[in-house]
Design a protein around this nucleic acid. Structure first.
Length: 391
DNA sequence: TTGTAGCTACGACCCACATCGTCGT
DNA sequence: GTACGACGATGTGGGTCGTAGCTAC
């Protein structure tokens, strides 16, 4: 049943295989919710807007979009992975290995009601709009303009390549990016991080960290390798997309070796580091970030991009580029988080089930392992949610 | 004002082991 | 170029410990 709505509907999904389905309404953000009543995939903002519009709409049953493929409605919630998965991904993931088979899964419960709550009222009596609304630009024009200015300023410093303010005496060059200090640098590593679908769903997910009444328990889910990821494929697409949308940060990231010759643009460094080194999103301090974004040991035959001469800002941004980057920056600002991020949910699940002595992991005896396996097998059979037959 | 004790908050550390990533064959 | 095995690195959570900062006396 759900399969009909599911992964195989890629062609109609507003994106090629491997890339997150886009919101059916705004066509710009990745969808996170599937509304069964409307048969529509919606992003958080559109969901909030549409389903908060009236009481009837708020009663629409919705489910989370599969956190793995991001393209189909979730059918199961894996408690071990704390992830909502469609039937296909659930089967894929939990047939991967015996440990995964032991994960306890339950059918996903539909979300009803208004996820984002009615607009709160501040002590002064003015209406405080929900975060979702604010995030999606429903602020008044005046407020929007103020925020625009602030964001522009902050984003400008984040926009490494904008030479306009880089001139002496102008306001921008406080920080030329991650290498040069400044608060906004914190977000830099998240940019490309978020671009990878593997991470993207995690971030989307955090973007709408559910209020307590959510029916589906959600935790950070950092894209465990147990989950079939599309990152490799996505990287290519990402690259394409960046080029198409002018998000390439001024980097000519051609596959030719020339791209790796010494042409030390900061954007190059950023992209290489974030994609290839593996950015750890939980980095919250500059030292952490510098660790996460730097090449501890550059590959042979390459040049340490961080140790070279001063970095040149390669191109002048067009207004469209700038706008795109500001938008992107804002998107990241919304989704940034400082909590610990779980990168491997299966490891977390395993760690939680391990025996401990005074907080330390203790050795498991053979008997314990056997009993545990028997118990989990029995449980799976009784609950009937095991999709893949255990052996 | 200075010194001491008590409390709280925070971060580093440790443990076992499944999984990942790299390297050599 | 591909497949496979070996092996070191990584990441995971709860308790403990050390240290810094604060308050009270």
């Amino acid at each position: 049943m759900l399969k009909d709505e599911g992964c195989n509907a890629d062609a109609a999904a507003g994106g090629g295989g491997g890339w997150a389905r886009v919101c059916d309404t705004c066509r710009s953000a990745a969808c996170t919710i599937y509304c069964r009543a409307d048969s529509a995939y919606l992003c958080a903002g559109c969901d909030a807007r549409i389903h908060a519009a009236n009481r009837v709409a708020s009663q629409h049953e919705r489910v989370w979009v599969c956190e793995s493929c991001e393209r189909a409605p979730a059918a199961f919630v894996c408690k071990a992975d704390a992830a909502s998965l469609c039937a296909t991904c659930d089967a894929d993931i939990h047939s991967a290995n015996p440990l995964a088979r032991r994960h306890h899964r339950v059918p996903v419960l539909p979300i009803a009601g208004c996820l984002y709550g009615p607009p709160a009222t501040d002590p002064g009596g003015t209406v405080v709009r929900s975060a979702a609304e604010a995030d999606n630009g429903f602020l008044g024009q005046e407020a929007e303009e103020t925020i625009d200015e602030e964001d522009e300023d902050e984003a400008a410093s984040w926009l490494l390549l904008n030479p306009v303010k880089n001139n002496n005496g102008s306001s921008n060059n406080q920080n030329n990016g991650l290498l040069f200090g400044g608060e906004v640098d914190e977000y830099l590593d998240l940019v490309e991080y978020n671009s990878c679908p593997e991470n993207q769903f995690s971030d989307q997910y955090n973007q709408q960290q559910p209020p307590p009444h959510y029916s589906v328990p959600h935790k950070n889910y950092g894209g465990d390798r147990v989950v079939p990821v599309q990152c490799g494929e996505a990287k290519g697409q990402l690259h394409q997309q960046h080029q198409q949308q002018g998000f390439h940060l001024g980097m000519e990231y051609e596959s030719s070796k020339a791209a790796y010759s010494y042409n030390p643009s900061i954007s190059h460094s950023v992209s290489v580091s974030s994609m290839d080194v593996g950015v750890v999103p939980e980095a919250t301090t500059m030292s952490d970030i510098s660790i996460s974004i730097s090449h501890p040991r550059p590959p042979k035959g390459t040049i340490d991009l961080f140790s070279g001469p001063p970095i040149q800002m390669p191109t002048q941004l067009t207004p469209m580029d700038r706008e795109a980057r500001v938008l992107r920056y804002r998107e990241k600002k919304k989704t940034r988080k400082f909590e610990k991020t779980i990168r491997y949910a299966s490891r977390k699940a395993y760690a939680e089930t391990r025996p401990r002595i005074k907080g330390r992991f203790a050795k498991r005896t053979d008997v314990e392992v056997e009993v545990d396996q028997m118990f989990s097998t029995t449980l799976m059979a009784e609950s009937g949610y095991g999709i893949v037959p255990s052996f």
